[in-house]
Each structure stands twice: as C-alpha cells, then as structure tokens.
Design a protein around this nucleic acid. Structure first.
Lengths: 221, 221
DNA sequence: AAAATTATCGCCAGAATTGGCGATGTTCAA
DNA sequence: TTGAACATCGCCAATTCTGGCGATAATTTT
C-alpha cells in the first residue's frame, strides 16, 4: 500500500513540483493539495492522509497553527514541516504544535521521499543540524541565574519537601531533625534565593528543577 | 585533516572491531581506546579527540556519568553514545549529560562512520526512531487532569497572583477587592484543586501552565 | 421560577510561617 | 590554625494562612 500524502503549500510552483514528485514516485501518492491553512483545515480531515507536508510560512493562518488544529483531529497523520527557517524558535513551536518532522525546503527530492517514508515508519526526519538544535535543548545547563546552586545539600532537600507542600513539622520528621533545624534551613534558603515566602521559593525551585529543556521564550507560550 | 576518535567500550571484541573500523577508514583515526569510564576520564582529556564513542553500559561508572564528567573538560569533543537500550530514560539522560549523538550498537559500520562525520560537522546523529522519541517530548500535551479548568476566571486570576508569592492583602489591592474576598476565592480554589495550602496550589498551577515537555521521571534527577 | 455558579463581603480562632537573635559542633579549605 | 560554610538546636513575637460558618447580589443554567 502506498503512502498517502497531503500537501499544504502556498506557492503554486513549489506545490506543483511537490505533487509531481510524490505522484511520480512509486509507493507514494498525493491525495490532496491546499494553498492555505484554512482550506487545509477543511479538506484534510476527511482525507485522512498518512503524511502531510506543511509549509510553515503560509499567508493567513501559519503552518504551525494549522498543525496545532489539525493534529487533534488526525492523530494518525504525521506532519512534516517544510521551511526555510532554521531558527530554534520555529522548530520548537512546530514540534510542540504536533509536527513530527522538520525539513528545510532545500532538501533534495530523494531525501524528502525518504523522510516521508521514515515518518510513516515511526521516525522523525530532520536534518542533522536541526537535530543538534533540539539536542542542545536538553543540554542547556540552567546556567546563570541558579541561586539554587548555592544551596547546600541539606537545604536542597528541605526545599524539595517544601515544594511538596510539607509542613515544617512533616519535613522535620521526614529528615529526622527538629522543627528548629528545618526552620533554620528554610531561613537560609530564603536568603539565598532572595525570597520571602514558601511559595516564592517553590516557584523558583520548580522553574529551575524543571527537568526539561526550556528552549526559547517562544515556548512559554 | 582526519577526525580523531576515542573509544570507550568494555567489551574487548567490540572495542577492537570499532578501532579497526575507524583506523581502517580514510579520514578517521582512532586516537585512544578505553575499557572503562575511570581510565577514560584520566586518559581522554589530554588527547582531546574530535569525537568520542561511548558505550552506555560500562561496569563501574556508567557511560552517562562518564560523559557528564568528561564534557565540561572537553567542550569541543562531541560524544556519541553507543547502546543497546532504546528506552526514553536512557536517551534523555545521555543527552542531558552532554552527549550529542545516540546510536544503537546494531548500527551498520558505514552509518557509524557517517554519524561520526555528522557529529563533527555540527549534526546530531541518531536513529529515526530515537529522534521520534525526542520529538514526542515536545508534544506531551498538557495532561487532561486539569482541575484548573473548573476554576472561575476570577479564581484563576487569584491563583496567578498567589503563584507570584503575593500576600492576600497584596492580591486584594491588585484586584481591587477586599481581603475577605480574596480569602474566599482562595478557599474555593483549594477545594477545587484538592489542596490544602498555597504551596500545593501553586505547584499544581505551575505544573500545568508549564509550556514545555516534562519527559520522564528520570529527568527530575 | 428555582437552582447553581460566581463574586463579593464579614468574623473568629487555631495553625503555620516568618524573622530576629543566639548557640554548639563538624568539616574543609586557605 | 583560623575562618567559612554547614548542620544542628533553641526561644519569642509578629505576621500570615487556613478553615468553619454565614451573608447578599448578579448571572447563568436548568
């Protein structure tokens, strides 16, 4: 069974050549093409393609938004973004919106076909450099503003329990020390983090222990 | 100039074949080999290889830890993890520790060489399926259990300020209502979120507004 | 029209937190 | 060896939160 592909691309020439490539390759067939996000949102769901190639730069609703709305209706369809942008923000937004692959428009035809097969086969096609950007996300070693770095092991432990909503007394029990000691640790924590309440300390803590990448501002929303 | 490679692999046979592959290929040269993390940590830094192939499963200190300690000393060296494990936890831990590539041991020789070149060239080599796992990280949708959905607009507003560490009185001023009203809103918030303190409410709030992926437990440390 | 939800206000008392000030002992680096 | 950072303990008072109980009014839903 060949892989069914939908194409969303506003440039008629590019779109035509994509259709030609897909339909001209055995094992692939183009089942729909769309010049803008709006029509894509209307017409793609009934078609249920295996894969969608989505230009990221559409007039009107952009490709990222289009994916965001399309994906919930078509969880089985894998979306590959096509773009000229290689910047981190775009990449993350697209992936967060539900895209599975991310290719540059300059990708040669054979690779594009390989990517379509790959994404259909459980992979996430992307250029090597884009992969690196994503990997770097995991490495951003919460570098600078980590007031928490200066927390002693014991203090960090207290903060962890504080974040779970434990009472001072419960923390004391959990750590086998007295209430007074917990109290003192917490005072030191507040000093070091420059906060004045449990809530602020926890907020700071959660924003820093955040296990994962916090790539770009873009992500915060 | 050929790419210098260090190899860390405890199985002598596998290590030997890797060395043979590297040294037998033009454009690559193996500059050191190590049977365990400890000797790797001692011997690799002076060598400053372009690329290090690191078995993830070493006796003693494991490969991930080895990378974590090596990378700060050798920011220019790109590390590719070699492993039989394909599970998410290992992948994330390795990347977070500073690895740039992640390949399965079953990777064919030519691909391994291509990966070494790729990582040296600014890429992040990894199998298509591993890439997918990483991408999925960015897609983990704000989970369903959003008790916050039932919060009224006003309550949500209060919670937001609560999360910033505002005192009841400050929230009252900010919202131009009385302390009593804030107090009531907060009581309702606690009921709806099933929490008993400001800290718990804020923790819940932050964990849900969190724009980004929160991959695995593994990440929490 | 009755009921539920939301937003607003109030009192009171117990519980928890915060902060000021001080103390002892250990460990580790200068 | 002297100081700095850490972990431990203590007292006391002021502030802040939490929860129980109740109330009015507007809006929305049923």
């Amino acid at each position: 069974m060949s892989i069914s592909v939908s194409i969303v691309e506003d440039d008629p020439a590019v779109r035509a050549s994509l259709v030609k490539l897909i339909d001209g390759s055995p094992g692939y067939r183009c089942v729909s093409q769309h010049a803008d996000a709006e029509s894509a949102l209307r017409e793609i769901p009934p078609v249920k393609p295996d894969v969608a190639l989505m230009d990221i730069n559409l007039s009107g609703l952009n490709g990222v938004e289009c994916v965001r709305r399309l994906k919930p209706q078509l969880p089985g369809t894998q979306v590959i973004m096509l773009t000229v942008y290689q910047n981190t923000e775009h990449i993350f937004n697209a992936l967060a919106a539900g895209a599975t692959g991310y290719l540059l428009k300059q990708t040669p035809p054979e690779e594009l076909l390989a990517a379509i097969r790959s994404v259909h086969d459980g992979g996430s096609p992307m250029s090597s450099h884009i992969a690196r950007k994503i990997v770097q996300c995991f490495q951003q070693p919460a570098p600078p503003v980590n007031g928490a770095q200066s927390l002693s092991p014991r203090e960090a432990e207290v903060l962890g329990l504080l974040a779970k909503g434990y009472l001072y007394k419960e923390i004391a029990d959990a750590m086998s020390v007295t209430y007074a000691t917990v109290h003192t640790h917490i005072r030191h924590i507040y000093e070091k983090l420059h906060v004045r309440s449990r809530t602020e300390a926890v907020a700071k803590h959660l924003s820093q222990t955040r296990s994962l990448p916090r790539p770009a501002k873009a992500f915060r929303l």
